[in-house]
């Protein structure tokens, strides 16, 4: 349902952006919501920021990897450091990136158009998508007008939904990426940069799909948690 509305909105936006770099992104058809998981391509992405407020926080780095044919394709891995408008400040204690490091970063707009390129025809996957999606929406709106019109799979929300449906919610069932990975028998990763977290999310996605309905039976509509 939600995805049908999205398709209409993209078609309308495309008519307004026929000359912009956004055009190709909008023109690329999205997979049907009934498409099997194996037949869709996903971009698993993670962003490090200077803060938690989507209105003011700057992007510091972004990493992603593509999942296709049900597999995490490491040849598609990318990470980009971004030069922020403001100082890194206290957030350095979370992501470990220093002002000096990010001062060598790229221009935010350049990186964003690369993100748009990569997302073309694909579904966005983020663990705990709220802040990251809000940031991408803000960047998209600033450049092209509208928020980023594409379906999102939030692995955290997906697991939460599944637990609720099965009445599995208990106070101790953490939904943090590392804890969920452990529950799906995925290996422990020590490093935490945006690329490792993107790969972690991608592995979690394929593990969740394999565990619950299997890659062949899972439909895209079962996974999409928002737009």
């Amino acid at each position: 349902m939600r995805m049908l509305g999205l398709a209409l909105r993209r078609r309308w936006l495309k008519s307004k952006h026929s000359e912009s770099p956004f055009e190709e992104f909008l023109a690329a058809p999205l997979p049907e919501s009934s498409a099997a998981f194996d037949d869709c391509e996903f971009v698993c992405l993670d962003i490090e920021t200077t803060g938690l407020d989507a209105k003011t926080a700057d992007l510091l780095s972004v990493g992603w990897v593509v999942v296709r044919d049900g597999r995490v394709d490491l040849s598609t891995c990318e990470t980009h450091l971004i030069r922020p408008a403001n100082e890194v400040g206290d957030s350095a204690s979370v992501h470990g990136l220093t002002d000096t490091q990010v001062s060598h970063g790229k221009d935010e707009g350049l990186v964003f158009s690369r993100i748009i390129e990569v997302l073309t025809g694909r579904i966005l996957v983020v663990h705990h998508a709220g802040l990251d999606k809000a940031l991408l929406d803000r960047l998209c709106a600033a450049r092209y007008g509208p928020a980023l019109p594409l379906p999102v799979v939030d692995t955290l929300a997906l697991e939460h939904r599944r637990q609720q449906r099965r009445h599995h919610v208990s106070e101790n069932q953490s939904l943090r990426l590392g804890d969920l990975r452990e529950r799906y028998n995925l290996p422990y990763y020590q490093a935490h940069d945006c690329l490792v977290d993107a790969i972690s999310t991608a592995e979690l996605l394929i593990a969740m799909v394999a565990t619950h309905d299997g890659a062949e039976k899972t439909r895209l509509s079962q996974l999409v948690t928002g737009t």
Partner: peptide, 14 residues
């Protein structure tokens, strides 16, 4: 080698 890698997940018994 890492770039030439695809990661797949197999459920027990598959």
């Amino acid at each position: 080698a890492a770039r030439a890698t695809e990661i797949a997940y197999y459920r027990e018994g598959s």
